[in-house]
């Protein structure tokens, strides 16, 4: 009895792993297909425009508000710590570095995954459940080219712009708290920032990070939608999976990219 339970557990784990690898393979093939079929949607750019509107413009409010508040919190906390060492003039540098290098891309990515990624998955999943994708396929219009690819590219284009806005608003939030409310010197706030934030090392790397996150989230979102079981339950499960998998992917990729970019 005991032994049976144990074998069942290991059997379950084994099946889970095999299933995960199988899905990963399918996801990779799907990405290949998606890129192969992207030509037509990039030529008809208004399809992508629509998706930039849905995943980018509609995520704007949450990104801007979150960015502002994260910057303000960084301002308060940073000041509390730095003032102990008498180096509150480095507040600007601290706020900007933490935003541009880490918090901007990562938090914007997480917000993007839960705001836009889940919406993309749900939309594609529902189109599949209501036979819209089948109908399109029967009309000799490839649903991957017509439905999936524009959403993918819309996400890929939106994400770095959103992350940049998040960081910029965060810096402003830090400025509001540090300079306007607490009253550190605005001159040293900006000059310390400029002296310490390097264009190539910090800003370009931050943009690269956010672009990678955008790719990852969009890929997960369209794949989960396309692969969703065509039922209400299947779509809801796929949506949850999108948020979980893309959040984990962002954090994992962030670790890899950070150790590649900022070591030594």
């Amino acid at each position: 009895m005991m032994l049976e339970g144990i074998t069942a557990v290991f059997g379950g784990i084994g099946r889970g792993v095999v299933d995960a690898v199988w899905r990963l393979g399918f996801a990779a093939r799907f990405l290949g297909m998606l890129l192969w079929l992207s030509g037509s949607c990039l030529r008809r750019f208004n399809l992508v425009m629509r998706e930039i509107y849905f995943s980018g413009v509609l995520s704007l409010i949450i990104i801007l508000v979150s960015g502002l508040f994260v910057g303000m919190v960084l301002g308060i906390q940073g000041y509390e710590i730095l003032v102990r060492y008498g180096s509150e003039s480095a507040l600007g540098a601290m706020v900007a570095l933490s935003l541009v290098r880490e918090l901007g891309p990562v938090l914007a990515g997480l917000l993007f995954a839960s705001r836009a990624g889940s919406a993309i998955t749900a939309e594609i999943g529902l189109m599949k459940a209501t036979e819209q994708l089948d109908a399109m396929d029967m009309m000799a219009v490839d649903p991957i080219a017509r439905v999936v690819a524009p959403r993918f590219w819309g996400g890929v284009i939106s994400m770095p712009l959103l992350a940049a806005m998040f960081s910029a608003l965060g810096v402003l939030g830090g400025y509001i708290v540090g300079v306007v409310m607490i009253g550190t010197d605005p001159g040293s706030f900006w000059s310390q920032m400029q002296a310490n934030v390097d264009f190539r090392q910090d800003i370009v790397n931050g943009v690269i990070k956010s672009a990678v996150f955008g790719l990852a989230v969009s890929w997960v979102a369209v794949f989960e939608g396309y692969d969703a079981e065509p039922t209400a339950e299947g779509v809801s499960r796929a949506t949850t999976r999108t948020v979980v998998i893309s959040s984990l992917a962002i954090l994992g990729l962030d670790f890899i990219l950070t150790s590649l970019m900022f070591r030594g």
């Binding site: 930039i52 900007a96 712009l161 959103l162 806005m165 960081s167 910029a168 900006w190 920032m193 800003i203």
Partner: peptide
């Protein structure tokens, strides 16, 4: 949206960086 994103990037490069 795109203009705002590019302005944010410019702000980060010139004013912050």
């Amino acid at each position: 949206f795109v203009v705002a994103g590019l302005v944010a990037l410019l702000f980060l490069s010139v004013r912050v960086g």
